[in-house]
Structures are given as C-alpha cells and as structure tokens.
Design a protein around this nucleic acid. Structure first.
Lengths: 211, 211
DNA sequence: AATGGAATTAATGTATACAATTATACATCT
DNA sequence: AGATGTATAATTGTATACATTAATTCCATT
C-alpha cells in the first residue's frame, strides 16, 4: 500500500480546490488567510501556500482584500470544450495505444461505478464516477504532459457537469458513450477511441451549454 | 505606465522558472530553500512559495533532499508538439477572429524584432522574440483558458527551440512562417491562420526532433 | 570487515512575530 | 453636501523560530 502522507498545505489545497470548483464558495467571495486558518485550526502558513497555488491555476486571484474566488463564465466553458474536443480525442487514442492491464481494470471499475450510480439516479455519485473515468483515461496515455494539461481543464467544469446530470437522459447516454470508449480502448482500437471521444465531448458540450 | 509591483516570491518564481527552463540549472539538480534564500539574500518564505508553485507546474519536484529539477524528455517534447499542433492552430484562428488593433501592433512589433535578430544571427534574441510572438498571439485569442493552457506548454521547450535556431536555415524559414501567420491574422482570415499555424508547428517539431 | 543502530545533521513543514500596504471610517474644511 | 486628509483597522508579505522527518555518519558489536 502506498499511503502517501500529505502535508497540511496539500490537504488544504485539495479541499479548497474541490470546494471552490463544486460551488461551496461562490464567485467573487473573499477568502482571507486568517479566517481560513482559524476555521481549519492551523497557522496561516499552509493556508497561504494552498492559496498561492490556487492563484497559480487561476482558481483564485490574490488581492489586498483576500483571495477572490474566480468564476467560470459560459465562454470559459466553451473554450474548455473546444480545447478538449481537439486533445482529449488524442488522449483516447494514446490510451488505446498505451493501456496496461491494471489501468484498464481501473477504467472498467469506474465505468461500473458510473453505471451503479446512474441506475440509482445518484447525480453526485454519477458525476464523481464520470470525473474518475476521465482522469483514469488520462493516466492510461502514460503522458505526464497530457495528464497535466487535461486534468485541470476537466476539473474546472465539475460543477456544470453535475447540473447536466439532472437530465436523466444525459446520464444514460453518457454512460453508453463511456462504455463505447472503454471497449475501443480495451480492444486497442485507437482510431475508434479517438472518434468516439470526439462525439462524446461534443455531446457533453451540448448538454451543458444547450447549443 | 503600469509598473506592477511584483512580490519577492513572484520575482523568484519568474527567475527560477526561467533559469530552469533555459538550462541554468540542470536535470536532477537539487535546489534547497536555505541555499537559495542565502544566495538571493531573502528569507526562506518567498523562496518556498516560489518552489511550491514550480512544483505545482511540475517544473521541480519537492523531495526531502530539496526541490529536484525535473528534466524534459524527448517524449515530453513530442507530446507537447502533438498537443500544440491541435490547439495552437485553433488559437491562431481565434486570434484572427478576435484581434484588436493594439494587440496586432504588438504582434507586428515582435515579428519585426525577430527579423532584426535573425538578420544579426543572434540566436538568443531570435528565440526570445519567437517566444514573445507566440505569447502575444495567445493574448489575441482573448481566451484566458487558451492562454493558461498554451503558455506553460510553450515555455517548457524554450531551451530546445534555442538549439534549433543554430541552424540558420530554420531561423529564416520560421520567420517566414510567422510572417504568414501574422498577415492572415491581420487580414482576419481565421481559416488561413489556422492552417499556416499547423504547418508551422509541424515544421518546428521536425526541426527540434529531427524526425 | 560487515552489520545494526543510535547520534547527528540537514532538510522540509508549520507556527508565530513583525513589516508594509491597502482599505475603511471619521473628522475637518470648503 | 462633498471633498480631503488622517487615524485606525484589516490584510497580505516577509522573516524568524520551532517541530518533524529523512538522510548520513559513525561507532559498537558480531
């Protein structure tokens, strides 16, 4: 087992990133180092490190009044999907070409998990499993560059994807699309995985943006 | 005049990023907070903030022995070019569609600067102007997502691009390619800018990787 | 000489203290 | 009333002190 010990700063970074991207904190909200450190029961130092790393990723913006939560506009979502359309399809192809047995098993596990939550009509569970599926696929590319590039883009829209899963139809079709992608990857068919991913991204985009 | 005051941490981040990506520090070299703070004449705090942000971008890796400088493999370069091929062409199209007068002037200025250095056979100057041209083009897209995504990818290979400019032929053809892209953008011809950028990226890739 | 393990060292991680800057409130002047 | 200046407060930025952990050294034991 590889239980890596995370520093307090790392834990706070993960927690704040999740809370901001899922909407616990809202757009333009000001997070001050002192308040956060008091709430969390730690000193300002690790809080400050977490915030400066969030600022690095443009998730917050440091100001003299506190770290301002950056919102995500509709145009941001459009741009993210335009970029993902072009490179996540490549990632699917690379995954098909480089997949190892263990990674494939993990991808399958997340697919099954998504099916489980979709049948239970659990939107949060479905959304989490969806996120896991994509991140696992990135890992299959064996490309740190791809993982670093797509990971943040995908995480940024988790809140909006969540909303789209309230359309029950979307949850079911998304599951089917994932299944097709998984099978193409498992079969080592890069071309097919690439094309199916293109279709999937375009449908997800339409489901979220409605156009 | 907009002389923005940068914090010490920001300055150190910029300096270290530049020095690592241009090869002042080499692969696997260990940077310790204490030594850096003594060398730079500041406390560990801003040094530490800079390093943790560099780790966030996978430019260094934090270990118990210091911040280890991460190297860039040939495969990393291949992956970066594969991604840029697909989205920097989109960026060129977006730049053509969203360019404003001031941004175009800046792009032209950097093009002229590249010409100046190319004629003088100044590889470092040419490389710097090349980098500036691409970053200015990203800015023209008016898309924070595009800027955030492409910026780091482009900066990562500055050292290797520098080497490719030692082939005088490459410097001249690159200049010509940039000129074509600039003119397509200035003319508002998105399709052409997109196609010319694809060609440019592919040629640059070949020039660096030799295959 | 090889091995094991305590002592030491060197590094990061965290807390606190201090400095500098910016925002706010309030009084004063016109 | 509105502008302006000044004191106060709130917040970030930096330095330093302390805690913890991992590597290294070195000595004792076999």
């Amino acid at each position: 087992m590889n239980h890596k010990m995370l520093s307090i700063a790392d834990q706070i970074f993960n927690e704040l990133e999740h809370d901001i991207l899922t909407g616990v904190y809202e757009h333009d909200e000001l997070l001050t180092e002192l308040k956060l450190s008091e709430t969390l029961g730690v000193s300002r130092t690790p809080v400050r490190e977490a915030l400066s790393r969030l600022a690095q990723e443009h998730i917050v913006e440091m100001t003299s009044k506190g770290a301002r939560v950056m919102g995500i506009t509709e145009k941001d979502i459009e741009d993210i999907y335009a970029i993902r359309y072009r490179i996540e399809s490549l990632a699917a192809k690379m995954a098909a070409e480089n997949a190892d047995e263990q990674g494939l098993k993990e991808l399958k596990r997340l697919l099954d998990l998504q099916e489980f939550y979709t049948e239970k009509d659990d939107h949060d569970g479905t959304n989490a499993a969806d996120s896991g599926f994509h991140q696992a696929l990135y890992a299959l590319t064996k490309s740190p560059t791809m993982i670093q590039t797509l990971g943040p883009l995908h995480r940024r829209i988790v809140k909006y994807r969540r909303v789209s899963y309230e359309t029950p139809d979307r949850a079911i079709t998304s599951l089917g699309e994932h299944r097709g992608i998984y099978e193409a990857i498992a079969a080592g068919d890069g071309e097919k995985a690439e094309e199916l991913m293109r279709v999937h991204i375009e449908k997800a985009r339409k489901s979220i943006l409605g156009k």
